[in-house]
Design a protein around this nucleic acid. Structure first.
Length: 474
RNA sequence: GGCGGGUUGGCGGAGAGGUUACGCAGCGGAUUGCAAAUCCGUGAAGACCGGUUCGAUUCCGGUACCCGCCUCCA
């Protein structure tokens, strides 16, 4: 069996991965708060853990991996957007508007992440569907002395869990010393965090032993992962920004609820994304969503290629230059598959061992792409196709589409090649190449690559080949 | 202020205490009516300052810069 090694944030070491139960390898990744379109930073953990999901499925079998990624659909920003619509005159109830907003955002999320080649996780729980489990967990934490109720709030007693701060390498005392947090009067200790808080009548809320209210953010993940993956599971993932406080709090909640076992065995965090060397922010004007890129014509496979070029544990820079380079590379892949590949044959192949080995070494996606990029001759075309699909740059359907487009373009260029050949033959005799050059120039404008060799004229569609432009040349 | 991560040739980007990473771009050549494509060849690095070592880009310490978290923003 392939040995997978993963960097564990908890131990700060690269470790051999051994699942609790190879028949059911379990992974939880923190998903989005569904208030708006996913921006390009949101896509990074999705792609990173999608590759891990694919690798685990390959090694342990597609039916032996459970991947859970939640949707947080309780949030002030969601409420605010719904309220905005209501204020704008929408006659429906706030509850209906909230539901509409979360539903549409989830739909967008699926569309956008799907366009980037991500598989759908095994389960995508919505927080609002697990309120009962959250209440039960909170009640249990109170019973065990790890939480307390005060003024309608339930707070987690951070000092009651001695392991607090281990994941992020912080001591509670240091944090308080350097903290700039406003201490709510109902907190026993400044570090205590909210498990449950009261809700006003006009905002979403659920009945609980502590009155009508709603859950804190951190308890969602503890409750949902427990419900779907059990007391203990293999891998917990997310962005490095979630390491503290979110993941630290999750560990505290879950470990105090189920102290007899380890909550998540391996913690993995992806580094952040920048844009053209700078932090992405609305104020710098370099903020954009995945949908923005797709609408600009940057294809999902190009975006994914750029993401996979940088190891997940390093900061990644999104640049136009990278996107352009990736596009050329992707075009080369399609060309090779179109010329020499056979997708039916590809489907029967196993992914390349060197690709699996690279990914097994702490998800070295860059090395995997290097292996794939070296498949450049006719004999490797079907293998190339197989591996492109494996790593998620294409589905077979999407690849077939692109390959067919290329082949159709090629067929369309046949008559042009004959024409050019004729002009060239004449020119060789007359020594006057002006008509050949004009024709060549027109082809170039339609994004056709022109090659003239001793064996004849060869025309191939380039990246932005446009058959319509070709017709216009007549 | 506290904690954590990063810094490799023009660009992207790895591994490894000592042997060419690699890709793209560049340059030289072959080829071409001119090109393109292809093939052959080739220069170029390890932020800075110390330390450990026979030897460090790789280990340790410090400095600078960038980024994240500490504020329910991935």
């Amino acid at each position: 069996m392939t040995e997978i090694r993963l960097s564990n944030t908890k131990t700060r070491r690269k470790e051999v991965f051994t699942p609790i139960d190879p028949e059911n390898v379990r992974m939880y990744v923190c998903g989005p708060t569904v208030y708006d379109r996913a921006h390009i930073g949101n896509a990074r953990p999705v792609i990173v853990f999608d590759v891990l999901f694919r690798l685990l499925r390959h090694v342990y079998g597609a039916d032996h991996v459970t991947y859970v990624r939640n949707f947080t659909d309780v949030d002030d920003k969601i409420n605010a957007e719904a309220q905005r619509r209501k204020d704008a005159g929408d006659p429906r109830s706030l509850e209906e508007l909230i539901r509409e907003r979360t539903d549409e955002t989830i739909r967008w999320y699926h569309d956008d992440m799907g366009a980037l080649g991500n598989l759908t996780p095994s389960a995508e729980p919505r927080a609002t569907e697990y309120i009962g489990q959250m209440i039960a967990m909170i009640a249990d934490l109170i019973a065990r002395g790890h939480a307390y109720e005060k003024e309608g709030h339930v707070l987690f007693r951070v000092r009651s869990y001695e392991g607090y701060g281990k994941l992020s390498g912080r001591s509670v005392d240091d944090m308080i010393a350097g903290a700039r947090v406003e201490v709510a009067p109902f907190k026993e200790d400044p570090m205590d965090f909210v498990l449950w808080k009261p809700s006003t009548d006009d905002l979403p809320g659920w009945e609980s032993p502590w009155g009508r209210g709603r859950p804190g953010w951190h308890i969602e993940c503890s409750a949902m992962s427990h419900e779907l993956l059990g007391d203990s599971f293999d891998i917990h993932g997310g962005g490095i920004d979630l390491q503290f406080p979110h993941h630290e709090n999750e560990i505290a909640q879950s470990m105090c609820s189920h102290p007899e076992v380890e909550f998540a065995r391996v913690w993995m965090h992806n580094e952040m994304l920048q844009v053209e060397g700078k932090k992405m922010s609305k104020s710098l004007g370099n903020f954009f969503t995945v949908r923005d890129l797709l609408d600009q014509g940057v294809s999902g496979e190009v975006i994914r290629f750029v993401y996979l070029s940088t190891h997940y544990s390093k900061p990644m820079d999104w640049t136009v230059e990278k996107a352009v380079a990736a596009e050329a590379k992707i075009h080369g892949f399609i060309e090779l598959v179109a010329m020499y590949g056979d997708l039916e044959e590809a489907k029967a192949l196993e992914p390349e061992k060197a690709v699996i080995d690279a990914l097994s070494d702490d998800l070295n996606t860059h090395a995997a792409l290097e292996v794939i990029s070296k498949m450049t001759d006719a004999g490797t075309a079907s293998r190339l196709a197989r591996n492109l699909v494996f790593i998620g740059l294409f589905t077979y359907e999407r690849l077939a589409e692109r390959v067919n487009d290329y082949r159709m373009g090629l067929a369309l260029l046949q008559s042009k090649a004959v024409e050019l050949q004729k002009l060239r033959d004449e020119a060789i005799l007359s020594k006057d190449f002006s008509r050949v050059d004009v024709f060549k120039e027109m082809l170039a404008r339609a994004n056709v690559s022109v090659q003239m060799t001793k064996t004849g004229v060869h025309l191939r569609p380039e990246m932005d080949f446009d058959p319509a432009k070709l017709e216009a040349l007549k």
